[in-house]
Amino acid sequence: MAMEPSGRVMAWNPAMARLADAPADRAVGRCVTDLFTLTGEAGEVVDLAEMRSGIARLTTNSGRSLRVEVSCSAPAGGSLLTAVFIDRTAGRPLDHGRHLLLVSAQHELHAPLTMIHGHAQLLDAVVTEENAKKSLDAIHDAVEMMRRVIADLVVAVNADLPAAGAVPATELVDVPPLVRRTLQSVPPVAGRSLLSAPRSLLVRADPVRLRQCLLLVLGNVNKYAPEGKVSISVRTEGEHGVIVITDEGPGIPEDELDQVLKPYYRSAATRNLPGMGLGLHIAKTAITAMHGRIELASAPSGGLRVALHLPLAPPKEDHP
């Protein structure tokens, strides 16, 4: 590919189109940062205009992540920067030290998770107060999520794939009760939320992954919109069940709504707050793996509107 110093793409060959999941007619004329994200070995965002050669991680807008070798050149007196990308993903052997560290972490985390789960089960038998029961449910759910994340991470690192993109085993999920239960896990948001949902709405999804997505979105609401009402609705749109979460926070500028779904991207309006810019990207990757999609829009209140779309259960599955 070739680009101007400003980052505007001027040439884009078929191999680059396949690598970045973007055809030439969609790439030429656009800024390179709109097409993919480059990160270094430590996870830092890499500016292609300042890079000469090295290994980096290229993440496409669809969430596909590749390990690439990059070589850049700028002819003397020339106005274009030429960059050559070589996909090194398939040929990279797994580093033994990294594998050992991951397996050791998996082993060491298993014991405390088992203890937490076991003690929560003991409390289940003696606790009768409703709010305490809800807290125990949240503990059980968190343990299950951590176990799944650890297992997916092991598979992902061995296959050199993004963990959140591991293909989930979907099942019939009733969305309204799952949303209610997840909301109770974030008390600061639950206390100011208005939920509108039918008694039942069945979709095909991975319930643990869906809860993870909801917690990521609700966590962002808690961090970036700590005041104001939160509106949550569950409804049917065509062939999808949709969960819409709307807050009254500062929102995200229109020209950044697509950008914040990329890894490590943080809106200028929130860069003063702690965070890595990964939450919405992880949510997008997980929802996409369940054959759904995530949509961001500005809310009439000035806040952010997040919509999670998931395929409805086929009619024959409505009554398991």
Rank of each mutant, 00 (worst) to 15 (best):
E4K: 12
V9T: 04
V9H: 03
W12L: 12
A15L: 13
L19W: 08
P23N: 03
R26Q: 14
A27E: 05
D34P: 03
F36D: 01
T37F: 08
L38F: 02
R52K: 10
R52M: 05
A56P: 08
N61I: 09
R67S: 11
E69P: 00
S71T: 14
A76C: 07
S79D: 14
L80N: 04
T82M: 03
I86H: 13
P93Q: 09
D95K: 01
L100W: 01
L109R: 09
L109T: 05
H110A: 14
H117P: 00
Q121R: 15
V126T: 15
E129R: 08
E130K: 13
S135W: 11
D141A: 15
D141F: 10
V143F: 07
V149C: 04
D152S: 06
A156H: 03
A156Q: 07
N158C: 08
N158K: 07
D160Y: 02
A164Y: 13
G165L: 05
P168Y: 09
V179R: 00
G191Y: 03
S193F: 06
A197M: 07
R199Y: 05
S200V: 09
R204T: 03
R211W: 01
L214V: 08
L215G: 03
L218I: 10
G219H: 14
T236L: 05
G238C: 05
H240A: 13
I243Q: 02
G249Y: 06
I252K: 05
P253H: 06
E254C: 01
D255P: 00
E256M: 01
L257T: 02
D258E: 14
V260A: 02
L261N: 05
L261R: 12
S267H: 06
A268Q: 14
R271E: 04
L280R: 12
H281F: 14
H281Q: 10
A283E: 13
A283P: 09
A286T: 12
I287L: 15
I287C: 13
H291S: 13
E295T: 12
S298H: 02
S301F: 07
R305S: 15
H319V: 08
